[in-house]
Write a protein that binds this DNA or RNA. Sequence first.
DNA 1: GTTAATGCAAAAGCTTTGCACGCGG
DNA 2: CCGCGTGCAAAGCTTTTGCATTAAC
Lengths: 135, 135
Amino acid sequence: MTSPSEERDLARTTRQRTAIQQAFETAQRPLAPSEVLKLASKLVPSMSLSTVYRTLRRMEEEGMIAPVSVPGEPPRYELAHVAEHHHHHFHCNRCGRVFDLVGCPTGLSRLVPRGFVLEEHTLVLHGLCAECAPA
Amino acid sequence: MTSPSEERDLARTTRQRTAIQQAFETAQRPLAPSEVLKLASKLVPSMSLSTVYRTLRRMEEEGMIAPVSVPGEPPRYELAHVAEHHHHHFHCNRCGRVFDLVGCPTGLSRLVPRGFVLEEHTLVLHGLCAECAPA
DNA sequence: GTTAATGCAAAAGCTTTGCACGCGG
DNA sequence: CCGCGTGCAAAGCTTTTGCATTAAC
């Protein structure tokens, strides 16, 4: 598992790539490609959407970011060091933003039918975030 | 007030609509638009994909079917009478089919951050279905 | 007979890809 | 300098929409 040969060609440190990384570090929450473009464009105005898509894919392969998908929502990514700690997400029904949660429900295996093999699970809570909830 | 109930104009009982309904009743599992087309085409070969999309949307508005989405998968629908009983889904990583589960995990509210309001939740288990699991 | 529903084709997103140029190493 | 990564434009997919025709009722 410690074999360094898992790495592909080393990615170059371009202004675009750096800007995309910054976007994730600043946002502190899962971002959709269009959100990434918007944030990264502030640093590199020439940034194109195809570069965003290509770089996101590359970063995912490298294990730097991990996909986060919320039912009915466009795909998002978040920094892998966040994703490494198993967690789930909260989707605000009002502002549409997605937040990280800590913890995990119990007793999932009892939901699995006989003969089925459970490998992973995805949980998304929906409701109102602290900003959108009525005081 | 035009109508005494919340119903819109009554949907016509066309061959296409009937075929789509049959597809859901036969399949007994959530179906993606392309799957619906494939199944319903057996009954009405002239069936077009746009009719499938239009009819699915209509049926959803009428409350006859409910959307089922699995992260990273195309959107699906299932019959609402199934959806009414709160449940979750199992996605087979090998054959890609989606199955209904009974039951629900506990202790979700303890995952919600202070100030957030929990309204709903979505849970998808991933793994191998009985057919795809090794004996 | 009315009028909603259908089928086709074109349009509209979103994502991917081909290519020539420019920048990183 | 060499070659990867970028920007642009075009292509691919899935989903939606406009319109003339068909078929429910």
